[in-house]
């Protein structure tokens, strides 16, 4: 699909956005509405298998994502937008598996027939992230034109997490030169928030592991990894860490609290979804983009910066 054709896309929120990432869901929808973009939720979607299913049976996980892609196609869409890095990664991985692994194709076909829906064939639906959606459907010039409350004065460290760019081979559209996203130094979030007036800091850990998958099973490692991300962002001069994944966001928030309780290390950097920052720049109230739902209370900072 050509750039700029993402005005109306199928929407796959995924499980996290109905729970811990509710603020991301609310702010994504609010930003889309404000920008005149249409999101049509996939009917009767299922869990993508998150991080767990692929360690038990990767082909079942491929099927789970393929079913969502099949429904998207049946609804008449050729593009699905997934704001969660895990969902986005798994849809991309399914596309890759079904193009490269005969056993995955066979399992998907067998389970699709058993479930009574059309077998998804690779290449029918393009999966995009919320960053692709905003960047390509709207673009920086249009964002600049629409900004009502510039983020000017807010220093942002953009944190992309690990699954948005890895492994490289499931993202064939990335690393294609100017205009495309980079897997080594992703910049779409930087571009969008800069257009909204933010001052992005040069943040060396933008794709570093936060230990998200081990948040509960190995909390101490996760807390140390997150604390290092938070302190590095602060050392870079950031007021805010912008996120684009509910797992990263929750991990940063929860381990920020835990680092203070367990390690006695307090950090002050605030954590906001990029859609919350963009929404406020577009003139939406903090409540409309669900800032009050964040554990990391950015409201005093937003008030100080004239956004609340």
């Amino acid at each position: 699909m050509a750039d700029g054709d993402y005005k109306k896309v199928a929407y796959y929120p995924g499980c996290a956005l109905e729970g811990s990432g509710h603020a991301y869901n609310a702010s994504t929808k609010a930003v889309g509405k404000e920008l005149g973009l249409d999101l049509v939720e996939i009917e009767n979607w299922n869990c993508c298998g998150a991080m767990e299913v692929k360690n038990i049976d990767p082909k079942i996980q491929t099927y789970l994502s393929a079913r969502n892609l099949s429904i998207t196609e049946e609804m008449g869409f050729d593009t699905v937008m997934a704001p969660c890095n895990g969902c986005y990664h798994n849809l991309k991985k399914a596309e890759y598996d079904l193009s490269h692994d005969d056993a995955s194709v066979e399992v998907n076909d067998r389970l699709s027939k058993k479930a009574g829906h059309k077998t998804y064939e690779p290449g029918k639906v393009e999966t995009i992230h919320a960053l692709d959606w905003i960047k390509k459907a709207v673009g920086e010039d249009e964002i600049r034109r629409r900004v009502k409350n510039s983020l000017n004065g807010i220093k942002v460290a953009n944190y992309y997490g690990c699954m948005y760019t890895r492994p490289r081979h499931i993202f064939p559209e990335k690393d294609k030169g100017p205009g495309s996203e980079s897997t080594a130094k992703p910049h779409f979030m930087d571009d969008i928030l800069a257009a909204a007036g933010a001052q992005n800091v040069d943040f060396p850990l933008k794709t570093a592991c936060c230990g998200g998958a081990h948040s509960l099973s190995d909390s101490d490692t996760s807390t140390k990894l997150v604390l290092n991300i938070l302190t590095t962002a602060e050392a870079c001069g950031a007021d805010v860490i912008a996120t684009e994944c509910p797992t990263c966001h929750t991990g940063l928030e929860m381990h920020q609290i835990r680092a203070e309780k367990v390690l006695g290390r307090k950090t002050n950097v605030k954590i906001l979804y990029f859609t919350q920052l963009l929404g406020m720049a577009l003139g939406l109230s903090p409540n409309r983009v669900a800032v009050q739902e964040n554990f990391s209370d950015a409201r005093p900072l937003l008030k100080e910066k004239g956004l609340a």
Partner: peptide
């Protein structure tokens, strides 16, 4: 296992 749940997609390579 740290890191093997999420970005590594170990099963893809094992399957290959």
């Amino acid at each position: 296992g740290l890191g093997e749940f999420c970005c590594s997609s170990r099963p893809i390579r094992i399957a290959e």
